[in-house]
């Protein structure tokens, strides 16, 4: 006689819950409550970020040292998160760097699809250390086929009268051409 192994139940034995489709909401098959919260914030910058944004307004990328950990930190902060000591000795850094990583995005911030992709990534700033040491920004004057990790780039700044003390005072990073 065939000695069949008894089929054991699969856990979880059942899956409670009621699936709601977008059409159920559109057709008002279920009731719901809609809410649009309105809250505004003014985030304090603190010393280090205030100085950094002021630097951007003046067309400079500023970094600060942690001598104990041998770091030249950008974006700068008032303390080193590893040794928890204060940072000191601000310096202006060249506005050139290397692409550490990037993406070619067909999504806008709300996950809507866009036709012309956004080139975005992390720039490791040349004079800062240890690598990677830098920040996120856009890339321009290059195609999605040209962009690559390790590419040398340089900041393209907004005209001085349009700068307002924001990360957007840099428009994007472009390929660092020969001779620059």
């Amino acid at each position: 006689m065939e000695n069949r192994k008894e089929e054991k139940p699969t856990y979880p034995k059942y899956a409670p819950g009621t699936h709601v489709r977008t059409s159920d909401i559109r057709d008002k098959k279920i009731t719901y409550t809609w809410w649009e919260p309105e809250i505004q914030y003014a985030w304090s910058l603190g010393n280090a970020m205030s100085k950094f944004l002021q630097g951007l307004k003046e067309g400079k990328i500023l970094g600060v040292h942690c001598h104990k950990c041998n770091r030249l930190i950008v974006p700068p902060r008032s303390f080193c998160e590893y040794c928890y000591g204060p940072t000191e000795d601000w310096v202006e850094l060249k506005d050139t760097g290397t692409i550490n990583t990037y993406s070619v995005s067909y999504l806008d911030p709300n996950a809507n699809r866009i036709e012309e992709p956004i080139l975005i990534g992390v720039i490791s700033i040349d004079e800062a250390y240890p690598k990677p040491m830098g920040f996120m920004h856009y890339f321009g004057e290059m195609s999605k086929d040209e962009i690559h990790i390790g590419m040398k780039v340089k900041a393209v700044w907004k005209p001085e009268d349009e700068r307002e003390g924001s990360i957007n005072d840099i428009k994007y990073f472009k390929p660092l051409g020969g001779g620059e």
Binding site: T31, T33, W34, E36, P37, I39, K51, L53, Q54
Partner: peptide
């Protein structure tokens, strides 16, 4: 902290919101 921002014209705040809307099934 060893260094302070002493420039009175430097920015102090960054403004924004936490915009998102909600649909709560009852």
């Amino acid at each position: 902290f060893l260094e302070k921002q002493t420039d009175p014209t430097a920015p102090l705040h960054w403004r924004g919101n936490m915009q998102a809307d909600y649909l709560y099934p009852n």
